[in-house]
């Protein structure tokens, strides 16, 4: 119960420091990573305007996903005040997403972008530069030993920060199963969780992730309510 939850509080927190390819970084429970030395904040798979994309097809999902995602992003940006923001692909749910975005959200996004470098990495959902928005669009970005790209490369690759797969992890404890989004890293590379409000997750033990990590070193940083819980491979369960 809650009493027990409090006991755990001392051991887990909202951020978790780790190192990828020798570069110090902070994983934030909200789904972002921050490199303090570089002043760079990265988020992946925002999937903005996913609700309206479904609405176009007749499923009138709440039109608030863009708002919710941007509010969370605003919180992260306010906390870390990064010089550079990298949106690691699939920033919009489809090519027309940016054009569909209601004005209130466009204004909000422009506010967040003001005064900092903003880089849109192209993703499979949004291969083109988002309509009427500033910021540079690149297919990948190299910063020191790090490479940011949307789709993770096959095989083990040191220094790659990617998204696309929406990693999630599952544990089974006391007859209950808990599935959460997670950061997945083996210390050499990192695959980021999806940041968008309507995005789901794919189990890190799924075939799609095979051969990407050194299994002995794989840690899934599971996103709890306000805390990150690091789990090693042994504690994880396939779907």
């Amino acid at each position: 119960m809650t009493a027990t939850a409090r006991d755990h509080a001392s051991r887990f927190s909202a951020t978790s420091e780790s190192v990828v390819a020798g570069e110090r970084m902070v994983c934030d429970v909200r789904g972002a990573i921050h490199f303090p030395e570089i002043g760079l904040l990265a988020v992946s798979d925002l999937h903005l305007e996913k609700g309206s994309r479904h609405a176009r097809r007749g499923w009138l999902l709440p039109p608030y996903d863009t708002g919710a995602t941007l509010e969370k992003l605003a919180g992260v940006i306010e906390d870390y005040r990064p010089k550079i923001v990298v949106s690691l692909g699939d920033s919009f749910d489809d090519v027309g997403g940016a054009a569909r975005m209601p004005d209130i959200y466009r204004t909000r996004l422009l506010e967040l972008m003001r005064g900092r470098d903003w880089i849109w990495v192209a993703g499979n959902h949004d291969p083109e530069k988002p309509a009427d928005l500033p910021g540079g669009t690149v297919s990948e970005l190299a910063v020191g030993p790090l490479v940011f790209r949307h789709e993770p490369s096959k095989g083990r690759l040191a220094g790659e920060i990617a998204g696309h797969l929406h990693p999630g992890a599952r544990i089974v404890q006391r007859g209950r199963s808990v599935r959460r989004r997670c950061f997945a890293s083996d210390g050499a590379r990192l695959i980021m969780p999806a940041f968008g409000a309507f995005t789901g997750a794919l189990n890190v033990l799924d075939r799609a992730f095979s051969d990407m990590f050194c299994p002995d070193n794989l840690v899934a940083y599971m996103m709890g309510d306000g805390r990150l819980y690091p789990m090693n491979r042994r504690l994880l369960h396939a779907d």
Partner: peptide, 18 residues
């Protein structure tokens, strides 16, 4: 099985075992 129990308690327990 107590389905109402908070997911975070279970996450905490599992991670703690480690």
């Amino acid at each position: 099985r107590v389905p109402g129990e908070a997911d975070d308690v279970l996450l905490g327990e599992t991670a703690e075992s480690l």
